[in-house]
């Protein structure tokens, strides 16, 4: 199996960024996830071919890191931080609100594939706690009501690109620090939006 030309070109560019091709495993796993919407067996096999590793070695890497989702993941992955600083300021209530609004329990994906919900460990937003991420785009200063409204808005508007600045403006509150200028880009799936991965969409 190979990917389409554009993805293969991107994979080749990723491998070229490292002195040894094995180092490309992690970004290639993201690429495979972006391709299929989750980390498929075929995707992992292609990563093994491109890096000269065995399938078992690649699966060993994939299973170690929480952001590689080997089961189906929703269009919107909502990760609510419940580590100490967010917990102190109500992160658990935000998680409950998100789960109730989406009908998706912590660690699950809804049957319609729209939402996955998970509790996250510290996402580095402690000064703007409680915080959550949608497809790893950050929103700080979130109340349970904000969390519910955010999920309703996502379900009604189904944005193809999730823009952190947009969601922060609509549903966020206090920030850890001034983020600076608004960015055009955002995430196009449950993979961090990052240029070399081809996962940063422009959005409207």
């Amino acid at each position: 199996m190979t990917w389409d030309r554009r993805t293969e070109d991107r994979a080749a560019a990723i491998v070229g960024r490292y002195p040894e091709k094995r180092s490309a495993v992690m970004p290639l796993l993201y690429l495979a996830m972006a391709e299929d919407g989750y980390l498929s067996e075929d995707g992992m096999r292609r990563v093994a071919q491109l890096t000269g590793l065995s399938n078992a070695q690649v699966q060993g890497v994939a299973s170690f890191y929480t952001m590689y989702k080997r089961d189906g993941v929703g269009e919107y992955l909502v990760s609510v931080c419940t580590s100490i600083s967010c917990m102190l300021l109500g992160g658990d209530d935000v998680l409950d609100a998100v789960a109730a609004e989406t009908g998706v329990a912590d660690g699950e994906t809804g049957e319609d594939g729209l939402f996955s919900v998970e509790h996250g460990e510290c996402i580095g937003a402690c000064g703007g706690a409680p915080a959550l991420q949608v497809n790893y785009e950050l929103i700080e200063g979130v109340t349970p009501d904000h969390g519910r409204a955010l999920c309703r808005w996502l379900a009604e508007n189904r944005p193809a690109v999730v823009r952190g600045d947009d969601l922060q403006e609509r549903f966020g509150g206090r920030r850890s620090f001034d983020w600076g200028p608004v960015e055009a880009g955002g995430a196009t799936g449950a993979v961090p939006a990052f240029g070399p991965l081809g996962t940063a969409g422009e959005g409207s």
Partner: peptide
Amino acid sequence: VTVHLGAGAYICGEETALLNSLEGRRG
């Protein structure tokens, strides 16, 4: 200079785990 993204593992902040991760291994 190469910018490399982790994938959700606190332990990779430990410097030798980070190096394993950067080599495409379990952290």
